[in-house]
């Protein structure tokens, strides 16, 4: 039993998620209705995507505190590009998506070069670049506004072959994670996070692997920003401020060690869903409002501690 759990720590997260879903359904019988499920998934999706990207950085032994600021920057760049191109049809939307995701890649490369090539400490560096990215977002769009075309948010809320688009996005994230898990990149990343000196001595290009992880993290923050844009249908330079720390909680809940070299994004997806469900259950448990933050904090810390206790070697 413990060997199975140790190699697949996300199994526990899956059990926790199942329990939370059961409790939530008992408290709120309408939870299983497709419309309610879809609205819950829409709420959880941005953090889930950010958590996937954060996992790669953490597996490599680094950390990315700038994901929230990157999401804000991508959001304002996307809506500004759509407004700048103007007109109807798909052209402005495609231009906006391209501009937003290109911005994310640039942010990821900046983080990666500072940390992996210039050898700065990831935690302080990504905090500092986060300030710069957030400042740039305020420069691009000083105030919330700039509505996106109807086609943008309508298609985000739509269904495709009977399933909501948000579910397709989640499945695409999962499929990407599973695909990348079979590529050499993740093996290299695990090696770099597990033993930096060891990986260096085998001749692995450490900086390329670590920059790749930061670019993935920024890209997924960009995807999350596009989802938030689809949800709010406008730009907001202050969006996503809690994403960085929540995504780290999700990664740890999913069984990836902060010291690097183990874990994977599937656990983080479950971890992000567990975090969202804990909020749900507390809301529907009918606790006095003032107590909700405290109880949520206690449950999250207990879950984190439990996860660490079970998976520690």
């Amino acid at each position: 039993m413990s060997a199975v759990v140790r190699s697949r720590p996300w199994l526990l997260t899956l059990i926790a998620l199942a329990v939370l879903v059961a409790v939530n359904t008992a408290l709120q019988p309408s939870f299983v209705q497709p419309a309610v499920l879809q609205s819950n998934l829409t709420t959880f999706l941005p953090l889930t995507l950010v958590a996937i990207g954060q996992t790669y950085v953490v597996m490599g032994g680094d950390i990315d505190l700038s994901v929230g600021a990157i999401a804000a920057l991508v959001n304002v760049v996307t809506v500004s590009a759509i407004a700048a191109v103007g007109g109807d049809g798909l052209t402005p939307i495609i231009a906006g998506l391209a501009a937003g995701l290109a911005t994310a890649v640039v942010c990821g490369v900046i983080n990666g070069v500072l940390v992996a090539v210039l050898r700065l400490q990831a935690i302080v560096t990504t905090f500092a670049t986060g300030i710069v990215f957030a400042g740039t977002a305020l420069f691009v769009l000083p105030q919330a506004g700039l509505p996106v075309p109807e086609a943008f948010w309508r298609s985000y809320g739509a269904t495709l072959i009977g399933l909501p688009v948000v579910l397709w996005i989640l499945l695409a994230g999962l499929a990407f994670a599973l695909f990348l898990g079979r590529r050499p990149f993740v093996a290299h990343l695990t090696a770099v996070g597990g033993s930096r000196v060891g990986a260096f001595q085998t001749g692995l290009s450490l900086s390329r692997v670590r920059i790749g992880a930061f670019v993935l993290s920024a890209l997924f923050a960009g995807f999350a920003a596009l989802c938030l844009t689809g949800e709010t249908a406008s730009g907001d330079p202050l969006l996503g401020q809690s994403l960085a720390l929540s995504s780290i909680s999700a990664v740890v809940l999913g069984g990836t060690a902060l010291s690097g070299g183990s874990g994977g994004p599937v656990g983080s997806i479950l971890g992000a869903l567990v975090l969202g469900m804990i909020g749900n259950v507390i809301f529907f448990a009918g606790l006095p409002f003032a107590w909700q933050t405290l109880v949520q904090g206690l449950i999250v810390l207990a879950a984190l501690a439990g996860g660490v206790l079970v998976t520690r070697r």
């Binding site: 720390l245 909700q292 904090g297 206690l298 520690r312």
Partner: peptide, 22 residues
Amino acid sequence: VRIPPLVMTLGMTAIVQGGLVV
């Protein structure tokens, strides 16, 4: 418990904030 300090103190942040609200 050997919880990483970043995670432990982050969890504690939510708890103390919640305690303050109460």
